[in-house]
Design a binder for these strands. Structure first.
Length: 208
DNA sequence: CACCAGGAATGTA
DNA sequence: TACATTCATGGT
């Protein structure tokens, strides 16, 4: 399985090269984007983030202090704005009360993940995205694209979140840079060949 | 018009 | 545990 996963990685990297994720100016913006992108296209997230930047509140302090009704207006393009405004408030509060980015980076990964999952609005994928892309922890992020990849190539019997995550983490070296690039490449490839028509034609993973 | 996008919480059986 | 429903905007 290790060779299979590395074959997929190599073919994706050969096609697309470095993706330089997460696309954000600061680590705090990574966390904010991770919440905003829940079941939402990245283009819409960018509009919401741009609004927050123009208002000078694209930070934990900014999110924490701003009036929630005003926050809803700024993040409106990202959808689910009633929920996400509350989720962003919860997340900003958590970081401000627990040492923020640099303070939390020193903590144990497993403990950190459990604490992140207690935040209302932060599920497994969002927690893992924060761990990997904001806190530089070697955690593999599983999203809908990753699940579809595993299913279509029949790489695992169990396709629940934890099973797929273990598949990657137990077969690859726990390397932050590798997990960062691998997930980004999966998303890049899926956007190009799994949604647009015709599907799969010319996909670097044909026959893998 | 339908469908979905870098999910999560909540409710039901 | 395993599904179903709800949340909402904007592009294709």
């Amino acid at each position: 399985m290790r060779d299979k996963l590395l074959e997929i990685y190599d073919k994706l990297f050969e096609r697309y090269s470095n993706q330089y994720w997460w696309p954000a100016a600061t680590k705090e913006e990574v966390v904010i984007g991770a919440v905003l992108t829940q079941n939402t296209s990245w283009a819409n997230v960018e509009k919401a983030v741009e609004n927050l930047k123009q208002q000078g509140v694209c930070s934990f302090e900014g999110i924490y202090k701003i009036n929630i009704e005003q926050l809803k207006i700024y993040i409106k393009p990202a959808g689910f704005f009633n929920q996400k405004a509350e989720y962003l408030k919860n997340t900003a509060k958590f970081f401000l009360e627990n040492g923020s980015i640099n303070g939390l980076k020193k903590r144990d990964t497993k403990i950190l993940r459990e604490k992140l999952l207690k935040i209302k609005g932060v599920g497994k994928e969002t927690a893992d995205s924060i761990l990997l892309y904001a806190l530089d922890k070697p955690v593999f992020v599983v999203d809908a694209y990753t699940k579809r990849l595993i299913e279509r190539h029949n790489l695992s019997k169990n396709t629940d979140y934890d099973s797929i995550q273990r598949l990657f983490e137990e077969n690859l070296k726990k390397d932050t840079a590798l997990f960062n690039e691998f997930h980004a490449l999966i998303v890049k490839n899926a956007k190009e060949f799994c949604t647009k028509k015709p599907r799969c034609n010319g996909c670097p993973l044909e026959g893998v």
